[in-house]
Write a protein that binds this DNA or RNA. Structure first.
Lengths: 143, 143
DNA sequence: TCGAACTGTAACGAATATAATTACAGTAAG
DNA sequence: CTTACTGTAATTATATTCGTTACAGTTCGA
């Protein structure tokens, strides 16, 4: 799994936790524990997908553009990491003689494709709101 | 996803396609399109998990030790690539002050863990026999 | 209108992960 | 006792991921 997915989820949850406010890439980066440029790159994708609004210039930053209960991790996955389940390395070769060697790639593609559907369908059952709620549970359990 | 998983599935399907016979690491490597040392490494794991029998020395090699209809891709996944869904890179830091930053890691862990369960449950529904059958379908469709 | 505080983006380098190669000791068949 | 194998590890090559730096463009406010 792509770690940009994790960053995207973390950032959106943080924005949901700070409703209305603009958070700068530096603020988010500190919370996520990475550098601001990486955050800006991820947020660019989220902006183009309509999940956040951005404002450039002084007092600019990022703000959630959707209801936390309306965005699922599946939506974020599709925007950030679609196809990440399939390994880059593929076995076999369609040009070879053997039935197994020549068709394995296509068959495995189908399997990974179906596996990804299952994964997405689970991720679709979890919203940003859910994630934030789980985080708040952690706090209560500690208290 | 780990590409050793793909190699393992491919190898086992090939062995199921060549029932009874011993296949050498070189034969398998050619079919998979990689090098024999890599195959031997993967087969070592499959042997320790009981999926194949190996014989060293002349005319040695690998042979399926189980019924193709009895081994699922889930079994292979657990042997070869368990935990591969979770990214190595983690966001946040349990030591920090913010509720979000300090708990995100644990919450995401839980989500990836559940996602992996779903993935495994799908992979458990596909056996080596199924994969081989799909490959044979490719041949028939071509004819 | 100028400077400070931001985003957007790309280029580069460092660190890490993945795959190929090579080597060689051990084992079994003939 | 030689040949054809596996088992395993070390080394190198390659690809990917992540961090860093840089800078043009934008907006706010003094």
């Amino acid at each position: 799994m792509n770690s940009e997915f994790t960053i995207a989820v973390h950032s959106l949850v943080l924005l949901a936790y700070l409703p209305g406010r603009m958070a700068s890439s530096e603020t988010i980066a500190e919370n996520v524990q990475t550098n601001p440029a990486r955050i800006r790159k991820v947020m660019g994708v989220l902006r183009r997908s309509g999940f956040v609004e951005t404002r450039e210039g002084m007092r600019g930053g990022y703000r959630l553009a959707v209801e936390p209960g309306e965005v699922t991790l599946g939506d974020i996955y599709r925007a950030m990491a679609a196809g990440s389940l399939m390994p880059t390395w593929c076995s076999g070769d369609p040009e070879m003689d053997c039935v197994v060697g020549s068709n394995m790639r296509k068959v495995m593609d189908g399997i990974f494709c179906e596996a990804e559907k299952r994964l997405e369908s689970y991720l679709d059952s979890v919203t940003i709101q859910h994630v934030l709620a789980r985080i708040r549970e952690c706090r209560e359990r500690r208290a």
